[in-house]
Write a protein that binds this DNA or RNA. Structure first.
Lengths: 202, 202
DNA sequence: CCGCAAATCTGCGCGGCGCGCAATTTTTAA
DNA sequence: TTAAAAATTGCGCGCCGCGCAGATTTGCGG
């Protein structure tokens, strides 16, 4: 990757993190695009060269994470399908090195509450789901490679991908709904196990 | 339901149908809010009393349909869970009396193509998914009633609801991707059956 | 090290959107 | 019939997304 692309990636990340941080701190519509651009050290106009809306900037990190699941999945060709899926998901949603570098310039509890408010924002929810759907296509492709199906014609890979993203979304929502001490890791494994078991009544 | 609420429902429907029709005909950003309002015989300002964006107006019909699935589900307490789910979904996504009343002032193929373009619109995709998520909460509640769980604390109802909406979305996407003669009904039953079977490799 | 071409950033400006506010019209209930 | 409640409407503001064209930076061959 050349210097050029690396700088682009940096700017993407900087803008996204700035958008998240400011939104968590102040709330979605107390943040202007101008503020995000300034925080990332770039002109307002440039913001829209990278993202077509505030919401997209905020959802970018989610998109990235989910895309990495597909990537990771391709890197585990041997394992049984659902083992590979669970492993990939857990890997990407583990406490993150990047997240530790960037994150809360404030109290942890306060941060979590800010995130809760943020993801409740209607405009954001749509954008997050859209990011999930984008990743879903990649996951479907990865699954198709593995099981030897055609993503254009077969329903199966898309169903699996959809179920996986559904499990992820559900686990995260549950985690934010209940601020209990249940670790996300357990919620994710539970969810995926249940799905692989046909969602039989517990 | 009083006269008042009925008129509101009418206006909702009128605005939504107008938004859909115009968007299918001209494309998303060739339609101004003003146009939709005019087509529904209402002032532009009133549009925003009903919907907070063009996208929301267009997605309204989808939201309505999906909410009816939850409603129908509550009306089938006896059946085994997945039979009830499949039944409810098929009922709501069958060729629709309302859709036949309102719909294409143009060629059917042309209409389908317009719909394809419409749902490809990024802003719309997010809004449709959000509508699905809203309905998902209702479905989860309905499932919880049936299985005797607590939607606040249990993961299971949400997982089922998520899987159902995932199946619906996947089936619809597949239907639009392949313009084959495969009826949506079959795609929906296939998808739901596979999920209830634990998504085993076919 | 130089200079050129391509990619990127930036300032400007426009049209549309979402919504608060207050006045007006319509509906409901007494 | 009349008063209260609710819905519709017009007006106006601030922000947003983006096209355009000029300035700036980056990558590369000489």
């Amino acid at each position: 990757m050349g210097l050029r692309e690396r700088k682009k990636a940096q700017t993407h990340a900087a803008l996204s993190w700035a958008a998240i941080r400011l939104t968590v701190e102040r709330g979605f519509d107390q943040v202007k695009v101008e503020d995000i651009a300034e925080a990332a050290g770039v002109s307002p106009r440039t913001f829209n060269n990278y993202f077509s809306s505030k919401a997209e900037a905020i959802a970018f990190r989610h998109l990235d994470r989910c895309l990495r699941v597909a990537e990771e999945l391709r890197g585990r060709p041997g394992e049984p399908l659902w083992d590979a899926i669970t492993g990939s998901v857990l890997r990407q949603f583990a406490p993150d090195a990047e997240a530790i570098a960037h994150p809360p310039p404030v109290d942890a509890a306060q941060w979590t509450e800010g995130v809760r408010v943020m993801v409740a924002e209607p405009a954001l929810r749509g954008e997050m789901l859209r990011a999930g759907a984008t990743a879903e296509a990649e996951i479907a492709a990865a699954v198709a490679e593995r099981t030897g199906g055609d993503p254009e014609r077969d329903l199966y890979p898309h169903l699996v991908a959809s179920a996986v993203m559904g499990a992820v979304n559900t686990a995260i929502s549950h985690h934010l709904r209940i601020d209990a001490a249940v670790p996300v890791r357990r919620l994710l494994t539970d969810a995926l196990d249940r799905i692989a078991a046909g969602l039989a009544t517990p």
